Simulated assay, not measured.
Amino acid sequence: MKKILKGYILWTYGVFYCFLLLIGITMLVLKFHTLAEILKVISAWTATFVFVVMFHKIYPKDNFIHFIKRQVSGRIKISTVACIILLQFFICLGSILFKSIIDNMPIKAQLITSWTTLLAVFANNLIQGPLGEELGWRGFVLNELQKKFSPLKSAIIVGAVWGFWHAPLWFIASGYEGIQLVQYIIFFMVSIISLSIIMTVFYNLTHNLVITMIIHQFFNYFTAIQLGDRLHTFMVTALLYFIAALVLVNYKGVLFKQQNSSLNNNV
């Protein structure tokens, strides 16, 4: 499984980077901007596409539909969902208040206020983020890592791998260079690894990928709706998610318990 896991990660990186190259050619050379937007959406599903293609090699005795059902079979309490959303809302609020002080920017000027735009951003982030990534990164990689390592170590490893998977976007989409780019990368990685720890806590409590999709979605969404200096946004977001991860590290001991692998055992 170790060899297959490495192969999955390498293929996911490689296919995603090929998509980015194709998107660049489509936009800059062919000038087909609509096609480029479609390719962006498809590229966000790379982790899932690679997993689907490799599934019978990974779990030769399992059934894909049964695997999916197991990944979303765990019970999720409404209170848990509310807790997650409130946690991420207050992190967003902290970022806004910080920028209102440091950048002397009114709160209203820091947020998208159009309801149609807010809904469009929500839908766009859902399609290009959690729906396309969680099955591969958490449903497969995290589960397999937890068979060998503690949940905490597994969360850090998958967070780092998942974070560096985004590396080309730091250089072509962040808009930063020099020391600001270095700062952006550091803040990004701290945020992603902290988020991975938080995801692992709630995933191991619920055994349901929907919970990681919700966390992923609101991380992306609350970041996307903020205007102004994005470096300041990422700086505060990274700090607050790091604090949240530290607080949750010892929550019910789930990051140090040997996990039941029945969710992804072969049938």
Rank of each mutant, 00 (worst) to 15 (best):
T34D: 13
L142V: 04
F140G: 02
I85K: 04
D103W: 00
N143W: 07
E37I: 03
F51S: 08
C83M: 13
K108M: 14
I107L: 15
C83N: 12
I156W: 03
K147M: 12
L142P: 00
I112N: 08
F64H: 05
N63D: 15
V158S: 08
A44P: 00
Q88P: 00
T34H: 00
F164H: 06
I58K: 06
G136W: 02
R138P: 01
I91E: 02
C83D: 11
Q146E: 15
Y59G: 02
D62G: 03
V53K: 05
I101D: 06
K57S: 14
L87P: 00
F90P: 00
F140D: 07
C92A: 15
L152V: 02
W165C: 05
I68G: 01
F49P: 03
A155D: 13
F149T: 12
P151V: 12
E133Q: 03
A160V: 14
N63W: 03
H66T: 14
I58Q: 11
I85F: 05
T48H: 04
L135Y: 07
K108E: 15
L93A: 15
Q71D: 09
I42D: 04
E144I: 09
N63F: 04
L118C: 09
F64C: 09
I85D: 06
V161Q: 04
V41D: 02
L135E: 08
A82M: 07
L126S: 07
L131W: 01
K108N: 13
L152R: 05
A36C: 06
W165F: 12
G163S: 09
V141K: 00
S114P: 02
T117H: 08
A47M: 10
I84R: 03
F122T: 08
T34F: 11
L35G: 03
D103V: 01
E37R: 09
K77D: 15
I38M: 10
V53M: 08
S154Y: 06
W165P: 01
I76K: 10
G139Y: 06
K40F: 07
N143V: 11
I157Q: 06
P130R: 07
V52F: 12
N143T: 12
V41A: 09
N143Y: 01
M54W: 12
T34G: 11
Q88E: 12
E134V: 02
I91W: 01
E133T: 01
K153Y: 15
I102Y: 10
C83G: 03
I76A: 10
K57N: 10
T80S: 11
K108I: 15
N63C: 12
L126F: 14
V53Y: 11
L119Q: 10
V41S: 01
S150Y: 10
T116V: 10
A123Y: 01
